[in-house]
Design a protein around this nucleic acid. Structure first.
Ligand code: ZN
Length: 368
DNA sequence: CGCATTTGACCTGCGC
DNA sequence: GCGCAGGTCAAATGCG
């Protein structure tokens, strides 16, 4: 009932409006999967140790095994240098959400990790956790947390400690959305809709919308408080798929795009293997690492952990797996967080290469 | 024609 | 209770 102006390229304005009356940002064009690939890879590194360059290079050794074909590490480094991944599973009580800024990313991730129980002690013997995850105040036990997220399978930590936790670093976690999922969701009346596990990527790129192999339908755009850039909401085009993602540009560093994925695809990418979704990619990477962890198929040199003392496998696996794997995988994911348990896994597991696909997507769901 | 995008309205949760 | 902010809906519109 309303006439729409030629829209397009509105100028982002301040967002302190009561109702999203504005905000429309530049609509970038998808360019390359490589960006995202690298982002996924870079993420862990950046968060864990800031040894971006070397870590990326090391990680890239892993990617090829799972079908990822990032360009030379040096190239990627120029395209995107910062990466961050964190997850706020449903079980986390909606604890973390993003609006983190580039500068706060680390603090936020730390908080999240802590909430998830990944703080020191959970980390590898490498002890990288200690450096990156400063001691945090134990989150107050929250009443009833409908645990449901795979990622939070073991921890139903809440968001209560979110803001403060981030402070452990001395940085205020500014807008760590401690709010729970509103979701006009039609779940059950009165009952909060369980929030799917999420993870975000910080990608340094000019492109606003990175191609990830899946088709997305934009269903909303909102102005972000304290940011000149709007946030776009996308849903997987597959009607049976509930995966969503948000894309926004960091207000602190406009060159950084923050993509937050929520949920897991129940189908395969539309352009696999050339273009795998972030979820899939992440899953693949995670699996790659995971398999390394489980089976040591590859020589130590190819192991991220081996090349990067700062690279913590448990974190990588546990952070990325839950979102992208199916039920079966979730089980594995849980193992990944407990290296000790891993070892007890039956050895009758499919080989890495083929197993990867099987693990990621059940045959039935392929080509969804 | 089918699908994606645009965009104001609406819903929900939270802080004051 | 009110206002704010995040998230979602859905009709209109655009595009291939
Ligand atoms: Zn999907």
């Amino acid at each position: 009932m309303r006439s729409y102006p030629p829209s397009h390229v509105h100028k982002p304005e301040s967002v302190d409006r009561v109702d999203d009356k504005k905000a429309t940002g530049p609509q970038g064009k998808i360019r390359s999967i490589n960006h995202l690939t690298a982002a996924v890879v870079g993420v862990e590194v950046a968060k864990l140790a800031q040894c971006q360059a070397e870590a990326l290079a090391a990680l890239l050794n892993v990617a090829p095994e799972v079908g990822l074909r990032p360009r030379a590490a040096s190239d990627i480094r120029t395209d995107l240098e910062v990466g961050l991944v964190a997850m706020a599973g449903a079980g986390c009580g909606d604890g973390g959400d993003w609006p983190f800024s580039a500068d706060e990313a680390y603090a936020d991730s730390s908080a999240l990790l802590a909430e998830l129980g990944w703080a020191a002690g959970f980390m590898d013997d490498d002890g990288c956790a200690g450096e990156l995850l400063p001691p945090l105040d134990p989150p107050p036990a929250t009443p009833a947390g409908s645990v449901d997220g795979a990622g939070a399978s073991s921890t139903s930590t809440d968001d209560g400690a979110t803001p403060e936790a981030a402070d452990a670093d001395g940085k205020p976690a500014t807008t760590t959305e401690a709010a729970s999922k509103p979701a006009p969701g039609k779940t059950t009346k009165g009952q909060k809709r369980a929030r799917q596990p999420r993870f975000a990527f910080m990608t340094k790129t000019e492109i606003d919308h990175l191609e990830d192999g899946y088709r997305w339908r934009k269903y909303g755009q909102k102005a972000v408080k304290n940011s000149p850039f709007p946030r776009s909401y996308y849903r997987c085009s597959n009607s049976k798929c509930t995966v969503k993602k948000r894309v926004e540009r960091s207000s602190d560093d406009p060159s950084i795009v923050i993509t937050t994925y929520e949920g897991q695809h129940c189908h395969y990418t539309v352009t696999f293997p050339r273009g795998a979704s972030a979820a899939t990619l992440a899953g693949q990477i995670a699996f790659s690492a995971h398999h390394h962890l489980l089976y040591n198929d590859l020589p130590p040199l190819h192991s991220p952990t081996a090349q990067n003392p700062l690279f913590c496998r448990p974190v990588l696996s546990s952070m990325l797996l839950p979102q992208h794997c199916n039920r079966q995988e979730l089980q594995v994911a849980s193992y990944s967080t407990q290296p000790s348990s891993v070892m007890s896994l039956p050895t009758s597991v499919p080989a890495v290469d083929k197993g990867l696909l099987d693990d990621m997507v059940p045959p039935v769901m392929r080509h969804g």
